[in-house]
Design a protein around this nucleic acid. Structure first.
Lengths: 339, 339
DNA sequence: CGGTATTGGTAGACCGATCTAATAGAAATC
DNA sequence: GATTTCTATTAGATCGGTCTACCAATACCG
């Protein structure tokens, strides 16, 4: 039951290991008669190619790493699947780690991936990454890294939605409803994505007649529990906005639930709008107005970027922003100002 | 900018490579004075451990593989995260592949993982795996495999929900509502999970007064689109059941949407019940009755099983079933027989 | 004081591929 | 017939660790 190696194959086929290796890689210098004999021996012995051994000599491992916070958020699930597909299509196998938005975990995952000699890493940084010794391990190994959806370093590539534009689009739509107050609920406090979305909302609301005060917004974890908690915190302060802007659709789900617990009807008593536009948004009741940030495009673009950088590590760090698109649905359409 | 190796470290510390290697692994035979010197050299040179190289001699790679169909289904997302956590906690790094329920893709992913020398594989088999040459690659490399949630081979470990019991629980609940007809919608036609759930429903409905005909059920992909399509197919045949049993919560989402498109009110005009009990089920309107199949338990159990088998490959193949639990919610509670 | 244990360390084979440089023999050229 | 070119193949070094076997020096023992 021992492992079959190239040596065993070559011996069985009556050639040298070098020749067997050449056959393996389809070298045209080997005539068919010989390569057929080798391939037959492989099949008969049940040979399995050992990539790790090959990697020792070649300088690439044909593996990539992906670290995201939590795929129970469908937005990150979609992003993850796109990246896996791109990696697979390019012949890479993908290591995946879920940081759960914990920098300590993220650090350990980065480190083991680097030790496994990955050729590149997709990183959706945990909040607080800028403070942690994340960079240390990255530039000690000089592995190419592309930041996804959030960023903490200007020296690394970044691909994400144009959050500022997304915020502006949402603000414009909300003000066109005739709302007079809006508040942001949810999202990790110090992430670049949240800061940018706030900035977009602020510029979008400026001069629109809608009162929007970012300091009233409630930062939370990026999931339904966060949404419930965040909206509770806002309402319990006695703030009753015309429109609640959720940090993400995952958060909006929790907002819907908490509003209902308080006998408020989202879309009638208060508008709700959000970011991401996951598939679920359309299926909710009422369907949720959301700015699509196209995780498939982000993933695809990130993969292109990383593969390019692997080919040419000297490339300048790039920032690539994906244009968002507002999807208006009933969660804002049905709402009418209270009289 | 060349890579720093143990050789470089040992030279800088004035010891042999063997000694440096012993320090790396915390061998107690090396006195502190020496190991401190070595560790200092590592830090100064920016040494990064190369696991691939180490794996060549040791017989384990400290990597595991996970192949699932699609994590946009929150049930699989939860399962995936649990397994990643277990792998991480045990010191393993995880390769992940999404088969998209395509045996061809699944086969390629299995093969590259095996070539990467994974120590074990978690496999949520794509439908049709029994027909494909999946086993070939698995037993050629004799890598331990645990099947998740579905199975196609009796010779491999399996961990999943007790689908028969789940079906029975659901059937009993539905018949207690006073419904007189029920139909199953969705799910991949030939998967073991679907067959078992049908079996559970059939035995549960037997003698209960509820007419349930498995041959009327509509098999579809396991997602919202499948649910919409499946329920449309059923209703368009002129079948109007009192209760629709969805293959999974993901499917139920599409069923809700399609019913509404037809001006039917789920939970009033027709009961809906389902399997899985994802977090979303509770947040829907109406909240969805569902049988919880505890992905966290399945993942944890599967991880224990795989790690045990890696330690002792001679173990008999195991089947481990997780006890389900019915969560009754408004999607069945409000329903009253039409008069 | 001779002999045995113990401590601290090392040389060199080894894992399974790739890759360079070389070689034997056949074919082509002069 | 001698030289060159080409084709098919191979020996052996190499990647970066681990592991076995062994050695030298000191400590311990009766």
């Amino acid at each position: 039951m021992k492992k079959v190696t190239l040596n065993d194959v070559s011996r069985a086929a009556g050639v040298s290991r070098s020749t067997a290796s050449l056959v393996l890689r389809g070298n045209p210098r080997i005539p068919e008669a010989t390569s057929d004999r080798v391939r037959l021996a492989m099949a008969e012995l049940g040979y399995v190619y050992n990539r790790q051994a090959a990697n020792m000599r070649r300088s690439e491992s044909m593996t990539l790493g992906l670290i995201v916070t939590d795929i129970r958020n469908p937005y990150f699930a979609g992003l993850t699947m796109t990246i896996e597909e791109a990696a697979h299509d390019a012949g890479y196998t993908l290591f995946v780690g879920y940081s759960r938005d914990d920098v300590e975990r993220q650090y350990l995952q980065l480190e083991t991936m680097v030790q496994q000699q990955v050729d590149g890493i997709f990183l959706l940084p945990a909040t607080g990454s800028e403070l942690a010794p994340v960079c240390g391990i990255i530039d000690r190994s000089s592995v190419p890294v592309v930041q996804l959806a959030r960023y903490f370093s200007e020296e690394l590539d970044y691909v994400g939605p144009d959050n500022v534009a997304a915020g502006q689009q949402l603000a414009q739509h909300v003000s066109s409803l005739g709302a007079s107050t809006a508040v942001l609920v949810g999202g990790p406090e110090h992430s670049s994505a949240r800061t940018e979305r706030i900035k977009g909302l602020e510029t979008g609301f400026t001069g629109s007649g809608v009162a929007f005060d970012a300091s009233l917004s409630a930062a939370t974890t990026n999931n339904a529990a966060g949404g419930s908690e965040g909206v509770a915190r806002v309402l319990d302060q006695g703030i009753w906005p015309d429109c609640i802007v959720a940090y993400s659709d995952a958060v909006a789900l929790g907002i819907y639930a908490e509003l209902r617990r308080r006998n408020l009807d989202p879309g009638r008593d208060v508008s709700v709008a959000s970011f991401d536009d996951i598939a679920m948004a359309e299926l909710l009741l009422p369907p949720l107005t959301s700015v699509s940030t196209y995780p498939e495009l982000i993933g695809r673009r990130a993969a292109d970027l990383l593969l390019n950088r692997i080919r040419d590590p000297a490339l300048q760090p790039q920032r690539s922003l994906i244009e968002p698109a507002l999807k208006v649905r009933a969660s804002t359409a049905q709402w009418r100002p209270r009289t």
